[in-house]
Amino acid sequence: MKWAVTRISNTMEYAAAAVLMLMMLHIVIDVIAKYLFSTSIPGTLDVVANYYMVATVYLPVAFVELRGRSISVDLFYQWFPDPMKYLARVFGTAVSILFFSLLAYQTSIDAVQSFAKGEFVDGAYIVITWPARFVLPISFGLVVIVLLVRIVHELRSIEDTPLVPVDHDIETESLYEGVE
């Protein structure tokens, strides 16, 4: 289970990275087209907003949660005694499960409705948007699964141990390669 969610989360993270690269290239080509050739790529703005941004923001959430890297305030936590730390960790994950479940539930209904009516943006150009809607329930659904795996892991050990070994991580340790 842990192996599977790790693999899927990593894959989605890489997909987000690829989308980011595409977004950059798409905007750059649009700028070059406007400046040099007096033309532009139809619908760039809507594609960036409805596809690239949505994918870049939501695909990595499971990856982030698997590694416990969502941002929280550690000011008071650091002074908690161990049992309280344990409770705080489990509680934080439980609330996260609730939140992302709400999101997963509602956005999957939305995605299906959006598909059923063939949702699109009616602006300067027609841009079909319903496929992008499915990024949300897929991302949030996986987040819920990851958080369930995490809460089981957290309930089992009073120590704060990482869910996935840091070694298997995508090289954050090299962030500060210059620091001795």
Binding site: S40, G123, A124
Partner: peptide, 14 residues
């Protein structure tokens, strides 16, 4: 608007 601007040789931008 986009179609008209294109038809007169202007560059419609978003």
């Amino acid at each position: 608007q986009v179609d008209f601007l294109t038809s007169i040789g202007a560059v419609p931008v978003s």
